[in-house]
Each structure stands twice: as structure tokens, then as C-alpha cells.
Amino acid sequence: MKNIIKFISIILLTVFISCKKDTKDPEPVPEPMPVTPTSGTLKIEFEHMFDTVEFNLGQNYKTANGDTVKANMLKYYISNIVLTKNDNTTYADPNGYHLLDVSDPASTILDIPNIPIGSYKSLSFILGVDSASNCSGAQTGALDPAKGMFWNWSTGYIMFKLEGTSPQSGSSTKTLTYHAGGFGGANKVQRNFNFNFATTTSNITGNNSPYIHLSVDVNEFFKNPATINVATQYFLMSAGATAKMYADNYADMINFEHVHN
């Protein structure tokens, strides 16, 4: 250990001296300490699928009902991410709210920084925005109403937004418009996800680049328990029983795939 300190000190000193030009009084070089990391960053990757094939905007897929659907927008909130260690202590993501937008691949990989090192056995989060943040006035960041995920006439976040087209759509423009919102009581459309990593833990060492790979099956929006028939079910833009029906469908759309350490 001491040798490493010496070695680094010498290198830094050399660098410092060689950079020095007119400085008359070189400050003493701060003693560099080898730091044992106490935390690390975890990536959570959401890979979008339609059944077993890769999901992309602008491509046709066949729903459980046999309808051909093509999405041009898919956005949803993931919030309240909590990681649980083997010893049952937990770490909550301080960033709180993430807006995933399939048209922006970078937004589908979440960086969770400053996680204390250790072995983690499970992950939980909410699809949607918790009730409190729906009642707290003007928010910023992912919750900025300018993101287009906010109802202006009946306050609340659109938790899940899927738009596209289908030749079978009952709308005169053959469009599909699904904006699911409703944050409290019977109208809640937030859904909780909780994944145990089974045999492999997610190890945060501070020196690795671990990630958790999740898959999101978009077809689950169109089925189970309610099989969606786009001839009649092509429009959703308010909270209530219909939004809740769709939420019950997407409640199992995200699955745990594997952990990389």
C-alpha cells in the first residue's frame, strides 16, 4: 500500500512540476489517498419487446386479439426505485422520477448512482408517479408539465402513453391513443414491480459496471387480463375504470431477465 502511495505521489509530483511555469511557490502536493470505494453506479436497462421479438416504433406487430398495431410513441414513468441488499437494508434512488421514452434509447437505461457497495438481491419500483407528486404543484425535471405527460384540465400525470395506428382501429383516422392516468383511490393506475434476482445478486463494488436487465413486453398492454380489441378500444384520455383496466394489463409487462456484475 505504501509503495502505491509513493508511486502515485511521485507521478503526481512529476506532473505538477512539469506543468509548472511561472509559479514561484509550488503548493505542497496533497497526499493522494487510495480510496476504497464506498458506492457505485448501477444501470437498469429496459429492453422493449413485443412478445418475443424486439419492439421498435414504426413497426407492425400483431396483438393477442389479432389486430395489427404500429406505435409511434411509447413513454412511461418509472419512479421510487428501491434496491434491497442481502441483509435487507435498502437503498432508494434519490432521483425519484424517470421518464422513459422509447424514441430516446438513452432514456431507457437508468443510471442509479451512489449505491452503497454490497450484494443486492431485489429491485422494486413503481410504473407511474406517486400520488404526492401529483398534488405538489409545479414540478421540474422529468415531472415538468412541458414533457407532455401532464393533464392540464384534470390535474395528474399521464403515467403511461402509447400512441400509434392500426388498420383495425375504430377511429376515423385509424389512430390509437392511450393515455393512462389517475393517481389516487379507485382510479390509481400506478403499478408496483418487485423483482428478486433469484440465484445471482447484483454486486455493487464501486469498481464494476453492474447492470440489471429488464424486458418490457408491449403486447401485455393489449392482453391479460383484458384482451384489447382496437376496433372499439382505441382511445383513452382520462382517469377511471377504463384506465384502470389498461393498467391491470400493463401491471405485468415488465420482467426481470438477468443481472450483470
Binding site: C135, S136, G137, A138, P145, F150, N152, W153, S154, G156
Partner: peptide, 20 residues
């Protein structure tokens, strides 16, 4: 706010008429 109480916070009220 609003005659139907649809808006729950003074800070987001202006969004209603601005975007109506």
C-alpha cells in the same frame, strides 16, 4: 380550482386556460 375542481394546485392552474 376551476368550476369542476379539476385542477388540484394553484401552481398548475394556469396550465388549464393557457392550453385550453
Amino acid at each position: 380550482f376551476m368550476h369542476d375542481g379539476g385542477i388540484n394546485h394553484i401552481e398548475v392552474q394556469p396550465l388549464g386556460p393557457i392550453t385550453n
